[in-house]
Amino acid sequence: MSIQIRFGSRVLQLVVLGFLLGAAAHAQTTTYSCGNPQSGHCYGVNSWTQSGEYFGAYTDIAQVAMSCPSGCGGFVDDEIWLIDRSSSNCTTNDFQMCWVEAGTIESEGSNPTYFWADARPGTGNTFNAHYLGGTDPVGTVDHYMIVKDGRSSPNNYLIFIYDDSHSTLYNGTSSVAGTGGCGSALPQMAGTEIDIGQELAGSPSAANKASAASANFTRNIWAVQALDSSYTFWYNAQTAAGGVRSDNPPTASWTINPGSSGAPEGGQFTTRCCS
């Protein structure tokens, strides 16, 4: 009897050990398929939409350790987008939508870099990415702002990336695309969607997959009017979660719901990749 129990116990130990080893091996070998030319990227994002215009978007993102080694086949980033999917000048551009985005990107074989990009109305030179510089140390909370400039006509969008002390301060201008000198400039987009979160691209082997530590998005606010002579971002805070997409990876969720008791302004949305 005692021999049976001891034998059974040994079998159980082996089963448990095998399970643990298998799980560890699975964790090492599992990877992701997030974008070759035939499929789309993967996202861990929250999306807010409204019928009226968002004149700007803003979030705070803490810098985290990111990696996309040679062979990762794409990139990983944390960022904010202001999007127009419905204006006729946007639905007819190369992407069938316009947007302005800003964030931190880790591209294959590079280091984490502040960037902003836009896809403007019109075709041809639709998409432009601007690489600003290396990011602040891990743990630094940086501010990412996109705002429509009502002081100019047609309206540009201004992009700011900065830290509390403004020792890091980059800006950019998403200008209205010209028409090659053969007519008036195309009308600017009107954002009705704000997304925050992580984008992941590539279909690497397990040894080359990207990674990004947990990043918190806080102070999620939006501009209620275009920038005027007061040079102020007049805002309302997001008070409810939007639609969440978590492709696992990236993994994304609300860790503190906006509007909940004691929540920071605009809640706290968290992303990570790729374990």
Binding site: Y131, L132, G133, L169, I221, W234, Y235
Partner: peptide
């Protein structure tokens, strides 16, 4: 210029850094 119910956040006014790009 204050819209009803909105909160203000001043934009940075210092001279921004020139884009450095990535190596």
């Amino acid at each position: 210029h204050a819209p009803v119910g909105a909160v203000q956040l001043k934009l940075p006014t210092e001279t921004p850094q020139r884009p450095q790009g990535m190596k």
